[in-house]
């Protein structure tokens, strides 16, 4: 178990470093600069600006300085949100984004796995087909379509739920629902397919031959191997939810990190974009690490 963890870390850390390197070099060598967006600056001002932000140094020096700062948790100043550091923006926005993504992940996993099991209890029955259809549609419902539609129906037409801001707990419902829908559909489908494959395996027949009840056979013998693809999907899915949160924050006007990121990207706020990319890459590597550990719980052969 520890060996797997160490081996994963050995891949994850170089990956993270490569992400930082690549994004850094790309951004610094890119044509254009954040100062282009407004009025053209005269050469002297431009040089002064570059000096202030260290942009006149050789690339390798800039990189070294940047890496040193990142290690201390300092991602530099934001070029667009004047008076704010990138770290400050992250500290403000990340809790909102993580709560949103985390709640959506939990909801999606719970709904999806439950749906998959319900469908598998009576294969080919009406419930199975209904859930199958629902999940096929859910997978194709991007949050940027569901989000506005939910706002339209529940917020504007029915006025049941708040549509923006975070003034009450109820305000979380629509954003989380919109974000969780496609992931829940995918999880249900994966669970259902995994169970269908597991149910025809020899060890499940052995368990049935033992005279166990159908539910025991399903949950105790068929479900754990069926969940293996679900777990390996949830790592990337967590990444997808964080990405999806970008849109949801825009649609529902939530003060999360995603909104800063999009604004940063549109305005070429390099330090901000770089900081968020590094942070998210780290988070996603962490999720994949957790998924690998869960994997070992489900399949003793993976424990090495």
């Amino acid at each position: 178990m520890l060996a797997i963890l160490l081996r994963r870390l050995a891949t994850a850390l170089p990956t993270l470093l490569a992400v930082i390197l690549l994004s850094f070099v790309l951004m610094r060598t890119a044509p254009g600069s954040p100062f282009d967006s407004e009025r053209p600056l005269d050469a002297a001002t431009r040089a002064a600006m570059d000096r202030t932000y260290g942009l006149d140094q050789p690339l390798i020096v800039q990189l070294g300085r940047y890496l040193g700062n990142v290690l201390q948790g300092d991602f530099g100043p934001s070029l667009v949100y004047k008076d704010f550091t990138v770290s400050g923006l992250i500290a403000q926005g990340l809790p909102v984004s993580l709560t949103l993504g985390g709640l959506a992940l939990i909801l999606a996993a719970a709904l999806g796995i439950a749906g998959g099991i319900l469908g598998a209890l009576r294969p080919g029955g009406w419930l199975d087909r209904w859930i199958g259809f629902k999940s096929a549609v859910a997978v194709a419902l991007p949050s940027f379509v569901t989000g506005p539609l939910l706002v339209l129906v529940f917020g504007l037409w029915l006025s049941w739920l708040p549509v923006s801001g975070l003034d009450s707990a109820a305000a979380w419902i629509l954003p989380v629902l919109a974000l969780a829908t496609p992931t829940a559909g995918a999880v249900a489908k994966l669970t259902r397919t995994g169970l269908a494959e597991a149910m025809v395996q020899d060890h499940v027949r052995t368990a049935r031959a033992r005279g166990l009840s159908p539910l025991t056979v399903l949950v105790r013998h068929a479900l754990p191997p069926a969940l293996i693809p679900v777990v390996s999907y949830l790592g990337p899915a967590a990444a997808g939810l964080l990405t999806g949160a970008v849109v949801i924050e825009t649609v529902f006007g939530l003060p999360g990190l995603g909104r800063y990121f999009v604004q940063g990207a549109l305005n070429r706020d390099y330090p901000l974009v770089l900081g968020v990319v590094i942070l998210y890459a780290g988070l996603i590597l962490l999720f994949n690490l957790i998924a690998d550990l869960l994997y070992g719980l489900l399949d003793p052969r993976a424990r090495g």
């Binding site: 060890h203 499940v204 003793p300």
Partner: peptide, 16 residues
């Protein structure tokens, strides 16, 4: 009744 199957490799539940 008790049952013994052909493939001992796969007839036992791997995670138990």
């Amino acid at each position: 009744a008790g049952f013994v199957f052909q493939q001992p490799l796969t007839a036992l539940t791997p995670h138990l």
